[in-house]
C-alpha cells in the first residue's frame, strides 16, 4: 500500500530549528538523510517544506478565492515535510515513522489508490 508520512513539528520547535547553529543543523540533517538512505527502496517521493512563515493560503469565500498569509492548519503543530512510501501494510509504515529522527510527530495516511480493472 502507498502512504504519505507527514512530518510535523510544534511551532516552538520549528522556531528552534531556524535559530539553530549551522553545525547542529547539519548534524540533524545527517540523521534525516540516514533515515532516507535506510528506506531508499520504499520511499517514492517527498520534500522538506520551507517554514510555516512562508505559507500562503487561498481560501474560498462563497466560491470567491481569497489569498491570505499563513497556513490553513491552525494550532500548535505544523507540517515540515512529507515522504511518500510504498510498503506492505500499516505496520511497516509505522516502523518507518518510529525511526524518524527529529523528535517531531509523524502522521501516517494511506493514499487513495484507484482500483484496477474489476477481477473475476
Amino acid at each position: 500500500m502507498k502512504y504519505v508520512l507527514l512530518f510535523g513539528d510544534t511551532k516552538d520547535r520549528a522556531k528552534q530549528w531556524e535559530s539553530m547553529p549551522e553545525t547542529q543543523r547539519q548534524a540533524a540533517y545527517g540523521q534525516i538523510n540516514q533515515w532516507f538512505d535506510k528506506y531508499t527502496g520504499k520511499i517514492t517521493g517527498g520534500q522538506e517544506l520551507q517554514p510555516e512563515r512562508t505559507a500562503t493560503t487561498v481560501k474560498f469565500d462563497n466560491g470567491k478565492p481569497v489569498v491570505m498569509d499563513g497556513p490553513f492548519i491552525e494550532g500548535k503543530e505544523s507540517i515540515g515535510g512529507y515522504a511518500e512510501v510504498s510498503v506492505a501494510d500499516l505496520d511497516e509504515a509505522i516502523e518507518m515513522a518510529k525511526g524518524w529522527p527529529t523528535g517531531g510527530p509523524v502522521e501516517v495516511r494511506p493514499v487513495v489508490e484507484r482500483p484496477g480493472p474489476p477481477q473475476g
Partner: peptide, 14 residues
C-alpha cells in the same frame, strides 16, 4: 481495511 492494518503477528521489533 482503509488504513491497511495487517492481519499478522507483529514483527519482533514491535
Amino acid at each position: 481495511v482503509d488504513a491497511g492494518i495487517p492481519y499478522r503477528i507483529p514483527t519482533d521489533a514491535a
